[in-house]
Amino acid sequence: MAKPMTKTQLVAALAEEMGSDKKSAGAALDAVVNVITREVSNGGAVPLPGVGKIYCRERPERMVRNPATGEQMHKAADRQVKMTFAKALKDSVNG
């Protein structure tokens, strides 16, 4: 398995793909991350064409079990960030 790309490597790849400098590519990446964070934290969804959709899912309160002790405990309702992947991305990975 290949090592994950670092943010520095991602910024460099974006700069090369955009034909721009690393500073503007880094600013563009930060802007995209800020938009996604703001929208998802407000309960919205953000589609990334060709990649998938990032959204927030509400989870109801429930009973959970502590795996170490086996004790049942109550867990309050919370929200979870989810992502569904586009079929084109799945096909490119598997084909």
Score class of each variant (00 low, 15 high):
residue 1 M to F: 14
residue 1 M to D: 14
residue 2 A to I: 03
residue 2 A to N: 05
residue 3 K to L: 08
residue 3 K to M: 07
residue 6 T to A: 00
residue 7 K to T: 00
residue 7 K to Q: 00
residue 8 T to G: 01
residue 8 T to C: 00
residue 9 Q to S: 08
residue 10 L to D: 00
residue 11 V to Q: 01
residue 11 V to P: 00
residue 12 A to Q: 12
residue 13 A to W: 02
residue 15 A to G: 02
residue 16 E to N: 09
residue 17 E to D: 11
residue 17 E to T: 08
residue 17 E to A: 11
residue 18 M to G: 07
residue 19 G to D: 05
residue 19 G to V: 04
residue 20 S to T: 06
residue 21 D to T: 07
residue 21 D to Q: 06
residue 21 D to S: 09
residue 21 D to E: 08
residue 21 D to M: 04
residue 22 K to D: 05
residue 23 K to L: 10
residue 23 K to F: 09
residue 24 S to C: 12
residue 24 S to F: 13
residue 24 S to H: 14
residue 24 S to M: 13
residue 25 A to T: 03
residue 25 A to K: 03
residue 26 G to V: 00
residue 28 A to H: 09
residue 28 A to R: 06
residue 29 L to N: 01
residue 29 L to C: 01
residue 31 A to L: 11
residue 31 A to W: 07
residue 33 V to Y: 10
residue 33 V to L: 13
residue 34 N to W: 07
residue 35 V to P: 08
residue 36 I to Q: 04
residue 36 I to E: 05
residue 37 T to Y: 12
residue 39 E to R: 13
residue 40 V to P: 03
residue 40 V to E: 05
residue 41 S to H: 13
residue 42 N to R: 15
residue 42 N to Y: 14
residue 43 G to V: 00
residue 44 G to Y: 03
residue 46 V to I: 13
residue 47 P to N: 02
residue 48 L to M: 04
residue 48 L to W: 04
residue 49 P to D: 02
residue 49 P to R: 02
residue 49 P to N: 02
residue 50 G to E: 02
residue 51 V to T: 14
residue 51 V to R: 13
residue 52 G to M: 01
residue 52 G to I: 01
residue 53 K to L: 04
residue 54 I to R: 01
residue 54 I to V: 05
residue 55 Y to L: 07
residue 55 Y to R: 09
residue 56 C to I: 10
residue 56 C to R: 15
residue 57 R to A: 15
residue 57 R to M: 12
residue 57 R to Q: 15
residue 58 E to I: 13
residue 58 E to L: 14
residue 58 E to Q: 15
residue 59 R to C: 11
residue 59 R to W: 08
residue 59 R to V: 10
residue 60 P to C: 07
residue 60 P to M: 09
residue 60 P to L: 09
residue 61 E to A: 12
residue 61 E to F: 09
residue 61 E to K: 08
residue 62 R to Q: 10
residue 63 M to S: 15
residue 63 M to N: 14
residue 64 V to Q: 12
residue 65 R to H: 08
residue 65 R to D: 09
residue 66 N to S: 02
residue 68 A to S: 15
residue 69 T to I: 09
residue 69 T to D: 12
residue 70 G to R: 04
residue 71 E to L: 08
residue 71 E to I: 12
residue 72 Q to L: 12
residue 72 Q to A: 12
residue 72 Q to M: 13
residue 73 M to I: 12
residue 74 H to T: 15
residue 75 K to H: 10
residue 75 K to L: 10
residue 77 A to C: 06
residue 78 D to A: 08
residue 78 D to R: 11
residue 79 R to W: 10
residue 80 Q to E: 10
residue 81 V to M: 07
residue 81 V to T: 10
residue 83 M to H: 09
residue 84 T to F: 09
residue 85 F to I: 14
residue 85 F to L: 14
residue 86 A to D: 11
residue 87 K to N: 08
residue 87 K to G: 05
residue 89 L to Q: 11
residue 90 K to D: 06
residue 90 K to N: 05
residue 90 K to P: 02
residue 91 D to H: 02
residue 92 S to Y: 05
residue 93 V to G: 05
residue 93 V to M: 07
residue 93 V to C: 06
residue 94 N to D: 05
residue 94 N to A: 03
residue 95 G to F: 02
